[in-house]
């Protein structure tokens, strides 16, 4: 009798395992489906343009609360296995991606917004990156609907990604308030980095006036400014080189205050920049830094010689 019960239990356990296994395997195997960055798809290509940014954060819920409160973004959540991803939208347009990633015990890492620069051929970009002194952090790989991407560290150590978007690149339009409008690379050697990024993306490089001992360079393609390169601040000579991305705001002072009210921090107080509007640097509650940039339509004009 005991033998029969034992055998029957084993049979049931085996059947349960058999029926539960397909479900588990399906979840483990499911590829993460990420939305295209341009909807409807475009045929435009703008090599060298920052076309996407993605936040890596240990608290996706807190990030959604913060950025939703600050910029009015809404979110579409998705999950594959244990990977949680949120697509951030503003007025129906994709503005960013957010990925949940735990910070493992003892790991000293800081959440960050990662800058994705447009390329036509990710594998060719990898070859160029390696040839010019970069390191590959993530090998080229394809994400269904999104495109092919890879992540590198430039010769000074700043992390950036390249993306050959399956849906084309976003058109060259002025960002609306709440959208990403600008990017800058703060680096220990702007001159060498400019040569690196020029080799990667064929940028035109403009050398702009700066305080003695500093460099301020501007990268451009398609006759549009794409990013600035700046020396590390004098008081932060040992800082890790990094890319910063800026969201267009109507009022940097008010938005900074709102960021603090939502649990963020102000890293650089709002200050008037060369273009006449204010710039500020803030961090979200998990510590990811990003910029705020005031901009009016009248400010987008060319300097004529």
């Amino acid at each position: 009798m005991r033998s029969f019960r034992s055998s029957n239990f084993a049979w049931q356990a085996l059947l349960a395992a058999l029926f539960s296994f397909p479900g588990a395997a399906t979840v483990a195997a499911a590829p993460l489906q990420l939305p295209p960055i341009v909807e409807p798809a475009s045929v435009e290509r703008h090599v060298g343009k920052v076309i996407f940014v993605e936040l890596v954060t240990p608290d996706l819920g807190a990030a959604e609360k913060f950025y939703g409160g600050l910029f009015g973004w809404t979110f579409r959540d998705t999950q594959a296995g244990t990977i949680k991803y949120a697509e951030a939208l503003l007025d129906g347009h994709t503005v960013a991606g957010m990925v949940h990633r735990e910070v493992r015990a003892g790991e000293q890492r800081q959440p960050a917004w990662v800058t994705f620069i447009a390329v036509r051929d990710v594998d060719a970009a990898k070859t160029a990156a390696l040839k010019n002194g970069a390191k590959v952090l993530f090998e080229p790989h394809t994400i269904p609907q999104r495109g092919r991407e890879a992540i590198f560290a430039d010769p000074q150590g700043a992390t950036f990604a390249v993306l050959a978007s399956s849906s084309g690149d976003p058109p060259d339009e002025l960002a609306d308030p709440g959208e990403w409008i600008w990017s800058s690379l703060i680096t220990s050697d702007p001159d060498t980095d400019a040569a690196f990024y020029q080799a990667m993306f064929d940028y035109e490089v403009f050398d702009l006036p700066a305080d003695p001992g500093f460099r301020h360079l501007m990268l451009a393609t398609d006759n549009y400014a794409r990013a600035s390169l700046n020396s590390l601040p004098a008081s932060r000579p040992n800082m890790h080189p990094h890319w910063l991305n800026y969201v267009r705001v109507d009022d940097a002072v008010k938005t900074s205050a709102k960021a603090v009210a939502l649990g963020g921090r102000v890293l650089v107080e709002p200050r008037v920049d060369r273009h006449g509007g204010k710039v500020a640097l803030v961090a979200d509650p998990m510590g990811a830094p990003f910029g705020l940039l005031e901009w009016t339509d009248a400010q987008s004009k060319e300097v004529t010689k």
Partner: peptide
């Protein structure tokens, strides 16, 4: 899983220290 993201920045970066002539924004006329 098929998503290439494991790129937290090194911890401990202290931002700021931008002097009065430290500009980062896009250029404009003049």
């Amino acid at each position: 899983i098929g998503l290439g993201v494991d790129y937290y920045e090194p911890y401990g970066a202290v931002y700021g220290g931008w002097g009065p002539g430290y500009h980062v924004a896009p250029y404009r006329g003049g």
